[in-house]
Design a protein around this nucleic acid. Structure first.
Lengths: 334, 334
DNA sequence: GTGAAAGCGCTAACAG
DNA sequence: CTGTTAGCGCTTTCAC
């Protein structure tokens, strides 16, 4: 073994080339599989790389190839528990899909309206594309990315048709889920929608979904009301005999469950209950609560897929959708 | 303006050098502030960089400087809701601290026992150091990192004294919190500790903390028991009149609350209740539940700080601690 | 105090 | 099919 092959050294293509009596570029081609190259050479090179435990220096590769092999995932720094779960699952999806193409995910967290972190990452060229996991009204990140002409994909709705996005069609999904729940009420009845803060964009979508379901489905003998003040929900709960209660999210739903228990109303029997946002707590709560489940992992996966297609100049859809699933449990009478 | 100064171009140091009639190396020194350099030159260079909107190509900087300016945060892909919150907050801390030193955080998610993602990131030199947010018994990541002689920091306990770590002293904190709760029982009584799966390392620590509190504090007239089967907690709850129930985490605690309500036991009055793991749900639950709060953000921040010190060859402590706080709420009688 | 030149490790024409 | 030669954009000796 020649002198340059010391143990514990991190080998470069030069080392492989020297060891094999080939040139660096041949080694590069053999390893990347691109360009014209002999099959036996490829085999020799690969064997040698394997034997020496060669790993390419991706920073050098990035510089030479003008690609960082990194994507940025932008998410808010402050978030509620259920949003954090959503982001974590999204992130998983991105990481998994990215890994399949040799890409890593770099996180970029920001407080409202502070685009500096994203700006740095983009302008310093630490990533090749960015994925926005949340959209604000008049989003500054979008403005920045457009101005810089930087590739990006949005998770969620509201970005418009010209922007590549992956959406779970919240409004439509909520509507369909509401219909499914309401149809359990075979003889009609009273439906209450308990909604969290309307400052949260997602809650607006849920409310829209609920309203469109109620207005378009022409249910027989169904009346409905909206409660937007969770703190005071116990009042609304006691004014009437509700037959179905729909909650905007898991936190709201847990509050409603507590109130219902205090009022000694039996969930799943006296009243049906469901949530527009699932939570692991619902699987084992008493009773288990039906909920709409957003497939955050797939959203992350798909958005990354779109971003990578963009980068590779492969044809891609601007509008992409991931279906929600209905987790029907005993709170809606099974 | 010379020809090379087109709008929308991303400038390089060569461009600045040409524009200023200086050499590239002078520009580099002026911008980095290192080496001998004239104050007026620095000013001129900075002004020009500013004017042209120059941003260094960090990939090139990384290659030349043999530093990626990235850290890896390793976290499990599968996690419970409260763990995800913990990771998200940790990540925030890392991102914030990293940004202060020009570092970005790259996420590395793995299922149990699959070290491949971390291995890739380390061996392909995509990061300068790694932060482990969770430790398993006989941790394979630790083994890998040690073998590769790669800088890393661990968040949590159990890594041993030779490994740099940032810990929230869970055992001690749980013990202290338990003491605080038990001392509410002025006339003695029965204490039950309801513990989640002991396969989770954190639960072992919580149990140890609880036990050490009970054994070392010599409370008068206090008896205690452990329940490790949450599914069957209602049984344990009914065999005796408990005066204080301590729960290992928020999910467990919510189950206990439900069971207690079914048994028509008044929390905060008939029985005191507290959790060794806080959750936003506890702030507004009925009643609000006292809990031990781990400062995940600071753990993330501090671990990153340690990692950066390592990389800069600055003196650092191997053992670092972040205090937990006691959120005392009305479930323990205020 | 500043410039010239080499080099970080890889890719990609362009020759042969 | 393989080798030679330039870079990618920055840092860092080493001269001057």
């Amino acid at each position: 073994m020649s002198n340059r092959l010391r143990k514990d050294k991190t080998y470069t293509m030069d080392d492989l080339a020297a060891e094999l009596g080939l040139s660096k570029s041949t080694v590069s081609r053999a390893l990347s599989g691109s360009g014209r190259i002999g099959a036996d050479t490829v085999a020799r090179v690969k064997e040698c790389a394997e034997r020496l435990g060669f790993r390419p220096n991706l920073t050098a590769k990035a510089l030479a190839g003008q690609r960082t092999l990194n994507l940025a995932a932008v998410m808010p720094q402050e978030a509620t528990a259920s949003m954090m779960m959503f982001y974590h699952e999204c992130l998983s999806g991105m990481v998994v899909r990215g890994a399949r193409s040799g890409y890593n995910i770099l996180v970029c967290m920001q407080d409202d309206n502070d685009t500096v972190p994203l700006e740095d990452v983009v302008r310093n060229r630490k990533v090749d594309a960015v994925i926005l996991t949340q959209l604000k009204h008049d989003d500054k990140n979008v403005a920045l990315l457009k101005k810089e002409n930087f590739p990006f994909v949005v998770i969620g709705s509201g970005a418009g048709e010209n922007i590549a996005h992956v959406d779970s069609k919240m409004i439509e999904s909520c509507a369909a889920f509401a219909v499914q729940c309401v149809s359990k009420l075979e003889t009609g009845g009273n439906v209450l929608f308990v909604c969290g803060s309307l400052n949260v964009e997602a809650n607006n979508n849920r409310l829209s979904g609920f309203l469109s379901a109620m207005e378009n489905s022409h249910f027989e003998g169904i009346q409905y009301a909206i409660c937007t003040d969770v703190a005071d929900v116990e009042n609304d709960l006691s004014v009437k005999d509700w037959n179905l209660i729909l909650c905007s999210d898991d936190v709201v739903c847990l509050r409603v469950m507590e109130a219902l228990k205090r009022l000694e109303v039996q969930i799943g029997k006296d009243v049906l209950l469901a949530s527009f946002h699932d939570s692991i707590l619902f699987e084992t709560s008493m009773p288990p609560v039906s909920a709409l489940r957003v497939d955050a992992f797939t959203l992350g996966e798909k958005s990354t897929d779109v971003a990578l297609k963009m980068l590779d100049g492969i044809q891609y859809e601007k509008m992409n959708y991931v279906d929600c699933s209905f987790e029907m449990r005993s709170s809606t009478g099974k």
